[in-house]
Amino acid sequence: MKPIPQISEAESVVMEALWAHSPRSAEEVAAAIGEERAWQESTVKTLLNRLLRKNAVKVLKDGRRYLYSAAITREQWLHSESKGFLDRLFDGRVAPLVAHFSRHRKLSKTDLEELKRLIGELDDSK
């Protein structure tokens, strides 16, 4: 599997627009994120070009315009980001992450129930 590129926070906004609907022109991407961010179309084009260089986005020429689509799935990116986060901050382990949140941010009853369910599923699969 090819390595997943590092994507900045701003680039992730553009990727979300492409994951939601592809292919899209730069104008369509700008319109899709216009309510969330007050970016000019030139900003969106700059971000699209960065993502192209990183091979996170692919482009297809359609007459006089270019249509962009994601070259990686959201799931691939999420896996890479979460693994990197766990590796950097918690030595690749999930339990210290959960312990951190339980100490510094009260987990809701729903969070606890979901964690118990997930642990039960993991136990059942062994």
Results as ranks from 00 to 15, higher is better:
K2W: 10
K2S: 14
I4V: 13
S8M: 05
S8Q: 11
S8E: 09
A10E: 11
A10W: 08
V13K: 03
V14P: 01
M15Y: 11
E16G: 02
A17R: 00
A17P: 04
W19I: 09
P23S: 13
A26I: 03
E27M: 05
E27K: 13
V29R: 06
V29T: 07
I33L: 10
G34T: 08
E36N: 11
R37F: 00
W39M: 06
E41Q: 09
T43E: 04
T43F: 07
V44Y: 07
K45Y: 03
T46D: 14
L47F: 02
L47P: 10
R50W: 02
R50A: 10
R53P: 01
R53W: 08
R53L: 11
R53G: 15
K54I: 03
N55Y: 07
K58Y: 03
V59Q: 12
L60Q: 13
R65I: 14
Y66G: 06
L67Q: 05
Y68Q: 05
A70I: 04
A71S: 10
W77M: 09
L78W: 06
S82A: 12
F85T: 11
L86N: 08
R88W: 00
R88P: 08
L89V: 04
F90Q: 00
D91V: 01
R93E: 09
R93N: 03
R93T: 06
V94L: 15
V94C: 09
P96F: 03
V98Y: 06
S102T: 15
K106L: 00
S108W: 07
S108T: 15
T110D: 15
I119P: 03
E121N: 04
E121T: 06
D123K: 13
S125V: 09
S125H: 12
